[in-house]
């Protein structure tokens, strides 16, 4: 079937088998391999993307659901348009060593951005609760939590300017 959607701000039309997960479509057909697949039980969160602005697990989403929708993946997460900068959340992860092997990182970032967008003044408890669907084996989460709080503050500071 043919589906049309907005992918990272660009109109996209693809021919796809209905029995295709969005994560597979992105990785295999569209060559966007930043979205990772870390499990087969929809538990790890490495594949989180934004569908119409909301965080979803692209490994638990069928491609037909994209038709007419807006999708943002890690490859589309950027700073101010045209600035060549990273998103404030990405900058915060680098600044606070919020990643080690990098495999869970795209999903963490997409979840974090959604979390910070939804709630401007995140507490540590909010962040820990908000990350319950994203598993990291490297960091012990400490620097991720610190990064998300810093990234959220930077996102809202940038908005306030």
């Amino acid at each position: 079937m043919q589906i049309s959607f907005t992918l990272n701000r660009r109109p996209t039309t693809v021919e796809v088998e209905p029995a295709t997960l969005v994560a597979e479509l992105l990785r295999e057909q569209l060559h966007l391999t930043g979205t990772h697949i870390g499990c087969d039980t929809s538990q790890c969160g490495a594949c989180v993307v934004h569908l119409n602005g909301l965080p979803v697990k692209s490994c638990t989403l069928l491609a037909p659901a994209l038709d007419g929708a807006t999708l943002l993946t890690i490859e589309g997460l950027t700073g101010a348009p045209g600035s060549n900068q990273m998103h404030p959340m990405q900058e915060a992860f680098r600044e606070h060593h919020g990643l080690q092997c990098g495999f869970c990182t795209p999903g963490m970032l997409m979840t974090a951005v959604a979390l910070a967008t939804e709630k401007p003044d995140l507490t540590e408890a909010d962040v820990r609760h908000g990350l319950e669907g994203n598993i990291c084996r490297c960091t012990g989460y400490q620097n991720i939590v610190i990064s998300v709080m810093a990234g959220a503050a930077a996102m809202h500071a940038a908005k306030g300017e």
Binding site: T33, Q90, R94, H97, T105
Partner: peptide, 19 residues
Amino acid sequence: PKRKEDQRFLTGRGNYVSD
């Protein structure tokens, strides 16, 4: 210093075997 390897991981441009 901040890590040299972070840029590619933060932007979804790592190169893992499955990629």
